[in-house]
């Protein structure tokens, strides 16, 4: 009984500690400004959407949100297009330097992305993709690609090679066997990986803020404007950024351990 009560109290504390701030910023974002600045008003009497509306309309939040979504989607496409073949090779072929390749990819994962920002600005100017969604997406891929390669090779590795080989023996080419047999089996895992990748790109701020000056992603936009905006806009922005990420993570919770565990090693 004692033990049960103790566990319950600890659980309560954990829920408060981790959910509290999220709930509070949500409330703050919905509190009318007059009530927010009233120190005597702890709990708002009514909630309003005006801050969210002005964030999106007046402060160009819509544009930034759209750019964020485009950037994230494009990063996912780029990373999968490049990373999937590499992941396939890692699980299906034996070759010299395979471990070295895997190690390089793992190290890239912890490579400080800060370093690549500045040179990319000049590179992009030269090749004409400065201040574009494509530019940021390509840069974001530097942190998403290693993740996609590692997680995809782990997903593919979990699918018996014999399924694919059976396809080959029963009349398919290697490529078609991959498409028809392995890919459908890997799809749920890939979807989770894509969502995770989306969150990575959606949350990234340094690169986005350095590379794009006008076409900024939401976090970069907020970083730049929030400082000079009233508090309630900051809260609206923080909420808008937090919610999609939380919802996405919720849908992939089954993969929580494998995704984060792997991506961090």
């Amino acid at each position: 009984m004692m033990k049960k009560t103790l566990i319950f109290i600890l659980c309560l504390l954990i829920v408060l500690w981790f959910c509290g701030p999220v709930l509070l910023i949500l409330i703050a974002a919905l509190t009318p400004s007059a009530e927010y600045y009233d120190l005597a008003r702890l709990v708002p009497t009514k909630l309003t959407l005006t801050h969210l509306e002005s964030l999106f309309v007046r402060l160009n939040g819509w544009k930034a949100t759209l750019i964020s979504i485009q950037t994230a989607l494009l990063s996912i496409v780029i990373s999968f297009a490049i990373g999937l073949p590499a992941a396939y090779v890692l699980t299906r072929y034996v070759f010299k330097g395979k471990n070295l390749f895997r190690l390089t990819i793992l190290l890239t994962r912890s490579f400080p992305v800060i370093i690549i920002g500045v040179p990319l600005v000049t590179l992009y100017l030269r090749i004409g993709i400065a201040d574009s969604v494509l530019g940021v997406s390509l840069a974001h891929s530097s942190m998403i690609l290693p993740f996609i390669i590692i997680i995809s090779s782990s997903i593919l590795g979990g699918i018996s090679v014999e399924y694919e080989e059976a396809g080959m023996v029963f009349g398919l080419t290697r490529f078609r066997s991959f498409l028809r047999i392995t890919l459908p089996l890997a799809l749920p895992g890939f979807a989770a990986a894509a969502i995770y990748a989306f969150v990575l790109s959606w949350n990234e701020v340094f690169i986005s803020a350095i590379i794009n000056l006008t076409n900024r992603t939401l976090p970069a936009h907020i970083l730049n404007t929030a400082m000079t905006s009233p508090d309630y806009f900051k809260f609206a922005a923080g909420t808008v950024m937090a919610l999609p990420a939380m919802i996405f993570i919720f849908f992939t919770r089954k993969y929580l351990m494998s995704m984060w565990g792997i991506s961090l090693k």
């Binding site: 014999e162 023996v169 080419t173």
Partner: peptide, 28 residues
């Protein structure tokens, strides 16, 4: 390549494709 050898194989893990029904496995 294997597909042009007119062979059939029974694998150690059976490799019965999990995303297809039994009849699809046999007919595919």
């Amino acid at each position: 390549p294997p597909k042009d050898r007119n062979l059939a194989m029974v694998f150690q893990s059976y490799a019965v494709w999990p995303h297809m029904k039994v009849k699809e496995n046999i007919k595919y």
